[in-house]
């Protein structure tokens, strides 16, 4: 059984805003019967055509697809179109108290339907691509080369999801987009895309975010440790383990060559500097032996 949070279960068993809006201002449709999930999102705007006053959905899919759709409609009501466009798939997952990683593609589907609805309403160009199978998983606003032929997913769309969710493995990309989840022949291409995105994001200067929720902060600390710090230590035969995060206090234990190394104090300061640069100014790193 999937380990769904109580919020996911609640939104599945008692979905909010099911139905349609006959005079909707914006409608976004993604997915297909063949893919196993699909979402049709309806948005009604206020008289100024700026704020979303009502949202409804119809979803074909599993429990987390229904819950993600329900959550999405609740999240966007009352938002302006620009505010709504800022809702990310991670925000949908967070609203639900988290989704199993294999189900993250449900939150991506929600975010996409929203984007498609707003783009279409604004008359922005929505290029269509034809997938070779019946399996046209339409994320139609991303043109580009078709990578996953089974689910009809382009490189532009995959790069967007890889980048916004900081994905590093092909398995994660499958969990978030379904790409590579059927015949698997595009997995090498997905790995190339990950390398491209990682290369691009490494080249881009990274700055500290302005403000962070506690949850985001913890995530970011872990990410920086995994991506920026541990590879440096591995190069010298060392390693560290994250023991605890309490607000801005980060406890780490040094491993392998770093454990008991005379300069581990310096290493701890290096870790602290890096975290202060990339996460938050007030981070304090403490070394613990465990």
């Amino acid at each position: 059984m999937w380990d769904y949070t109580p919020i996911v279960k609640d939104h599945f068993l008692n979905p909010r805003n099911v139905g349609d809006i006959p005079d909707a201002d914006a409608v976004g449709e993604v997915g297909s019967l063949a893919c196993g999930d699909a979402l049709k999102l309806y948005l009604k705007l206020d008289d100024n055509k700026d704020k979303i006053v009502d949202a409804k959905f119809q979803t074909f899919g599993c429990a987390s697809a229904i819950a993600s759709s329900s959550a999405l409609t609740e999240m966007v009501k009352g938002k302006t179109l620009d505010e709504a466009l800022a809702v990310s798939n991670q925000d949908i997952a967070d609203f639900l108290g988290g989704l199993p990683e294999e189900k993250m593609h449900c939150s991506v589907m929600g975010q996409e339907a929203l984007e498609v609805a707003i783009f279409k309403y604004r008359g922005m160009d929505i290029p269509q691509h034809d997938s070779e199978h019946d399996h046209g998983h339409a994320y139609p606003d991303y043109e580009g080369e078709l990578v996953c032929k089974c689910f009809g997913i382009t490189d532009a769309f995959l790069k967007k999801v890889i980048e916004t969710n900081s994905l590093t493995t092909a398995e994660q990309v499958t969990n978030f987009t379904k790409a590579g989840g059927a015949c698997g022949s595009c997995i090498p291409k997905i790995k190339e895309l990950i390398a491209q995105v990682l290369g691009e994001s490494a080249a881009k200067p990274r700055t500290r975010p302005e403000k962070l929720s506690n949850m985001k902060k913890m995530q970011l600390i872990q990410e920086v440790l995994e991506r920026d710090i541990r590879p440096l230590l591995w190069a010298d035969g060392g390693d560290l383990e994250l023991i605890d995060i309490d607000g801005s206090r980060v406890q780490v234990a040094f491993r392998k060559a770093c454990a008991g190394c005379a300069s581990s104090g310096n290493t701890a300061r290096m870790v602290e500097m890096k975290l202060r640069d990339l996460v938050a100014e007030d981070i304090v790193v403490e070394e613990v032996t465990q």
Partner: peptide, 11 residues
């Protein structure tokens, strides 16, 4: 026999 229950993405 659905995809979503098995962790795979196809029926």
């Amino acid at each position: 026999g659905s995809a979503c229950t098995s962790g795979s993405l196809e029926p």
